[in-house]
Design a protein around this nucleic acid. Structure first.
Lengths: 214, 214, 214, 214
DNA sequence: TATGAATGAGGCTTCATTCAT
DNA sequence: CATGAATGAAGCCTCATTCAT
């Protein structure tokens, strides 16, 4: 395991980052490859060395972003069994990622349908993995669910994913507070009888050693 | 009070409905005016008798949809003072509207940024009105909020608005159940000490005499 | 000979006048029939009662304008034999008409090529009549021309017809002065040896009893 | 000083030349970009590599044409003080350019109003420069003007610019003759007392080493 | 006479993509 | 690795005109 990354890789990632910002600002379909050429300083045709089509570019962004999100989550959950704590970690991971990578996450949340065919399938597979992880945790917390599982799960994700529509860093409370509030709202609403887990000790805080985008 | 609506009005609304479906399916930018011409049976240029630009068409859909949503809400809340009940009505109205008008609501939620200039401002004005109504209710429920107001409000809307990303009528539980579950999750999470209001008697159920889109 | 003109005729002429203004402002091809409908207050389809096509409308304007110009000229020249005086009358008539009917004359001068087929031929016939009248006068003034006849004739018309490109009523000297100056420049340049005819007595001044457009 | 011009520049100029011809034939607004694509052999979209809009194409033509005209004039006038001779040079330059570049000059004369905004302003600035040069010369010739300066100046330009409406190379007298005649008509009409300058020796004749369009 | 509603043709422009260098 | 030049497809919109009423 080396720190070496080829110049190619570095440039690719820089392109992905810039492209994510542009897709976030103007929307995938409104953004033209020309916009990305301008923003990256690479020539129009030069870009095609790094991806084969605009759609693949979108896929690379989404796949990279989601991959990082999932990787990190799985590392966080590793060895943690208590479901409340697992839920808290999931939400914390999710929200922190959102706030730290606004552009990527907006693209991920908003441009889901822009992908087709295999690209779509591959991103969806990752989404399903996350969804199932969440659903399992919820079921452990409240095995005899008188709340519908899908409703509860997507209520939680909706709460979090909607962030990109309203959150503004300079105006809103800090992430930690958002995590606390949303966790509390959701967990007490979902399982009011159980005691909520207090805020985690921060040593596990992601975002420290974050690789590339994260 | 007559049932008379001009042929023009009727045709316009039928076009709006069809267009909303197409925008919902393909996305605003991917949908071409030709698609709408085909689906409505009106010629390409014939459509421009009813709106001046594709963007105005989107505006008409959003404005109409949101207008109906708000109108209905205000009629429902009229005379109701108890904040839990007001919240319940708001959520019920919102979710029912979503499920009954999937296309319009997806367009409303997903294509917010496709509008520019004055069109954008006018729709945003309505959004702000809804948001403020919600925020006031939440503040009445929990005046000494140790939860951030914006976070709580948008957590609620996120829970509900995300619906269009996962809900499938043929697969999911009925709306009433979604309303019950989401209301419970949110209200007990937001104000766990207060007793939640039981499901409303259905006489007030919207969707019965629903005007036009609603 | 009655003063009676049908309501139809009056409306037609009012449409022609308005249309001439619009064609003058925006140019024939840039002006849309819709523009004319708006300006006249007549509905789009209503206009077609007065003409069969946009091109015919242009023809009617040009033909009417040129007809009036020619009629008046022929009445003025009638009984006048002295060629300098005839020239002076021609120029006076031409320039006064231009200044009094800016819109029509701009359309006449600028939109010559917009007409095709028979419309074009009919207007051109009138133009040729005017040109030949002028040429004859010039030849009488200087029978042994060492100046090319076409060059001289069109130099004179160019001088005058160019007016619409620079003349601004509120800024320039009055028409009478323009007539004097142009006549002097041309006549002394064209036939320096002959004495120029002094300004005409004004009894013949056109523009007094001017019919319709004139 | 090399003869090297980039392939890009050469192609651009060839496109401008072809486009000028088409604009001259059909009129700016009647000519479609497709017409130009067909005539140049470049694909429709390929043209947009060389200009950003149809209007910019028109601007490029007018600006290039007028620029060349002015450049040449200023080079001709350089070092010549005697006003009659200066006038003669101006007219000679103008008329020769017209006859040698019929298409460009028709577009310049006829499509002045098709340009808007900054494009219009920039071409107008050049026009004003030419007009002022002319006006100054005229004032030197006849300082105590009992002829209005604007009328005289535009009478002269009208005489010349109208050319495109009637001149046909195969039918009319040669340019030199046109220059002689128009100069005589104008100068003797404008300042009859002064002796006219005889035709210039032809060594200065422009059109010999004419750059690009000229 | 007059109009509301509708349409086919065509115009300008943008875009993702390619290919020779 | 990178780019300048080019293209086919497609998109939005406008226009003159028509026709039933």
């Amino acid at each position: 395991m080396t720190d070496e990354r080829s110049a190619y890789d570095e440039k690719l990632e820089s392109i992905l980052r810039t492209a994510a910002q542009i897709f976030a600002e103007k929307g995938y379909h409104q953004a033209s490859i020309r916009d990305i050429a301008r923003a990256t300083g690479v020539s129009l045709s030069g870009l095609y060395y790094y991806f084969n089509s605009k759609e693949e570019l979108l896929f690379l962004i989404q796949d990279h972003a989601f991959g990082t999100l999932l990787d990190h989550l799985e590392r966080l959950l590793d060895g943690v069994a208590e479901p409340h704590r697992r839920l808290r970690l999931l939400m914390e991971n999710h929200l922190r990622y959102f706030v730290a990578n606004t552009a990527e996450m907006k693209v991920l949340s908003h441009e889901a349908e822009a992908l087709t065919g295999d690209f779509r399938r591959r991103v969806n597979a990752k989404k399903r993995r996350l969804t199932e992880t969440a659903m399992q945790i919820l079921q452990e917390i409240r095995p005899a669910g008188d709340l519908d599982a899908r409703v509860a799960t997507f209520a939680m994700f909706g709460m979090m994913n909607w962030l990109y529509n309203w959150h503004r860093a300079e105006r809103d409370v800090p992430v930690d507070r958002i995590v606390d509030d949303m966790y509390r709202i959701f967990v007490e609403g979902y399982a009011p009888d159980n005691a909520a887990v207090p805020a985690l000790a921060r040593e596990t805080s992601p975002g420290e050693e974050r690789p590339s985008i994260w």
